[in-house]
């Protein structure tokens, strides 16, 4: 019974990973790509690891998978934050159909 639930979690996780990577190809600029892919890939990989925990039970690999979920949820948003800020500071423009950019307005007012 646990193995059926594990297979369901793994299939859902792989599907979300696939949609995230499709967004990495389709969307138009750096911020939108980061936006789509970091959410879908984080929850998809967490779902795959939870499926591994359901397969293995309470032994070495299963508990390490739970620790890995905690680590992944704590660190993936930090990398997204660092990459978007460094992209903006290194001069990557937004998409030309974007609505507003308050960050560059405030940076121009400061300097």
């Amino acid at each position: 019974m646990n193995e059926i639930f594990g297979l369901i979690f793994i299939i859902v996780g792989v599907a979300f990973d696939f949609f995230g990577c499709l967004g990495l190809v389709r969307l138009p600029d750096v911020y939108n790509r980061l936006h789509s892919s970091i959410k879908c890939v984080t929850l998809g990989t967490s779902s795959i690891l939870f499926g591994l925990f359901l397969f293995k039970g309470f032994n070495e690999a299963g508990l390490k998978a739970l620790l890995c979920i905690l680590f992944l949820i704590l660190t993936a948003p930090v990398t997204a934050h660092v990459l978007s800020r460094s992209a903006h500071k290194s001069g990557v423009k937004l998409w030309e159909k974007s609505v507003c950019d308050k960050y560059s307005e405030d940076k121009d007012a400061l300097s």
Partner: peptide
């Protein structure tokens, strides 16, 4: 960004 996503995928 591609390198970051690749690093998470390898965990999967």
């Amino acid at each position: 960004v591609g390198l970051d996503i690749m690093g998470i995928l390898i965990l999967g």
